[in-house]
Write a protein that binds this DNA or RNA. Sequence first.
DNA 1: ATTGCGCTTTGCAGCGCTGCAAAGGACTAT
DNA 2: ATAGTCCTTTGCAGCGCTGCAAAGCGCAAT
Lengths: 340, 340
Amino acid sequence: MRETTLRDVADLAGVSPRTVSNVVNGYARVTDATREKVERAIAQLGYRPNVLARNLATGRSGQIVVVVPYLDTPYFAELLQGIIPAARKLGYNVLVDQTDGDREHEHELIGRGSRRFLFDGMIFSPLGLSQEDLAVRDPDLPLVVLGERSSDGTFDHVGIDDVAASTDAVAHLISLGRRRIAAIGDQPYPTGEAAQLRTQGFRAAHAAAGRPVDESLIISTARFNRVDGATAMAALLDRADPPDAVFCYSDLVASGAIHALHQRGLRVPEDVAIIGYDDIEDGRYSSPTISTIQPDKRAIAQMAVDRLVKRITSPSPVPGVEWRAEHRLIARESTLGVTS
Amino acid sequence: MRETTLRDVADLAGVSPRTVSNVVNGYARVTDATREKVERAIAQLGYRPNVLARNLATGRSGQIVVVVPYLDTPYFAELLQGIIPAARKLGYNVLVDQTDGDREHEHELIGRGSRRFLFDGMIFSPLGLSQEDLAVRDPDLPLVVLGERSSDGTFDHVGIDDVAASTDAVAHLISLGRRRIAAIGDQPYPTGEAAQLRTQGFRAAHAAAGRPVDESLIISTARFNRVDGATAMAALLDRADPPDAVFCYSDLVASGAIHALHQRGLRVPEDVAIIGYDDIEDGRYSSPTISTIQPDKRAIAQMAVDRLVKRITSPSPVPGVEWRAEHRLIARESTLGVTS
DNA sequence: ATTGCGCTTTGCAGCGCTGCAAAGGACTAT
DNA sequence: ATAGTCCTTTGCAGCGCTGCAAAGCGCAAT
């Protein structure tokens, strides 16, 4: 049996298809009598508009897509908790896609692909993509970039001040009297911009305290996840002069590092203090609880959606905005120890 | 500037639009000469097919949606890691939506809404919806349900044997000599079916060991998350006769419970043994590592996608299948203690 | 009685693509 | 030379909806 269409409803109600459309969309002025007739017909036939057809006719889909590297990274999952309701409130439906941090895939998504037509705009958190890659993006696609890139003026960028936040984190370790501070999570140019900014903060904090940086304590990892954190920590502990504190570039890395420490029977923070980044829920429940940098996720989410929708609805080109959310240092047990 | 269309390409290549379509879709036999002409024109104009138009014409969208209660629940995030590649391999794009476990919202998604047209099928993990609610679903929508419901024969159901798995978990605690075993995560009828099956397993294990069940040790929670786990555990510890082991209905609940124990200076498993459910990555890294029930997530994901695609592509009605994936008991530190 | 106004309703065309079936063309068999 | 066959290419119509602008209509003003 065929799906009922606008025309079927129109026939039953004795009006033109256009009028049914007007009722369905709440458009224009429709007399109460007409509206009621049409609504009765709709109910009777169980009519539902075909969004596909509507989208084709209007050229817009009412959907925005949020593209993240990994859905199983709690930071993104938590960010989405802010993005989804914010977008819904503005009448947009949110769908999520993941790239596995794969450069090809990311490229395809921001490039001039045919999926373009499915979405009115995109909130994108790049990982494998370098700044140059971003240049080949589809200029038609309203875009808000999350994270650490800076905008070239044709899209918006929303994030926190990574250098300042990282400086705060490391300064905290220094203020606790730690002498040999390692960093886990650096990544080489050109793709690891987030990581490089954090390393920059790491250096800045040392400089501000008049301390030299031991370059051998800056450890690169492929990803910001637990496995890599544990592996890097284990490697540090195998050395003759292990660190007494570690700045981890994400809470997941920190969680992995703590795991590696516990496996060797070392105590956090007595033997090694750990600070993470992102403030995921996990860190508030782990043992010890993880000191971290807390970005204002709600503000980031709200801002990203606002900017994107502005971009979608504005007929004229919108200048790219660089927007920094607040961040806070949250000191917990992994640096302060158990306080009671 | 207008987006280039099939017709533009046809004009430039000197062929009919239909032929361009054939080339684009790899349809039919097209001579190499023609194909090359067309491809040159496509490249020259930077043509990309309008998926919206294609979808309208074909009536299919090539997208499937995975609907989960909460994206920030690691179990779902991990499951998606299996679903997304499996679906991609079959030519489907996966989009994710979350319901917040809200019954209204879930209802809307499986009902006869207009979003129906955006997706060829749905993999759905219900939470707030009761078995009766599922009955009002859109019969046209190919559907695979994850989790604990049983199928009414009009859709497929994929999950593990929750009763058996829960029995295994509790039997493990009993075998370790624990005497007062609590359960955290029960939920009342009619929505909390997953929880009820686990409670059933909890009872079954007691019965098998010839032990009575202390009903007061079965604690209900609103969700399977950390906060609720911590709160419930704290309440148990406030009692005169606290348990010496707890079966938590998810690893998140277990994580919360362990947190509550540590806050009181109690040791896991020496004072209280904890077992969780789901085997999320978190539990492999926490201190102590969390014993758990490991569902075969990869198999669940693969099966869900296979069944859904079969349903989408089959012209005739497909009978509903009830499919159970394997599960394993993984004993870690939270029940065995630190072994070295 | 005629004109003009404002509101509601309508008809038309078209969004860009594909399904279908038939037309065209090259080539082989008779 | 003619008919038949097979493969490639095409034309048409339509997916179901909305933008646009004009038509219809009731009512007040002249």
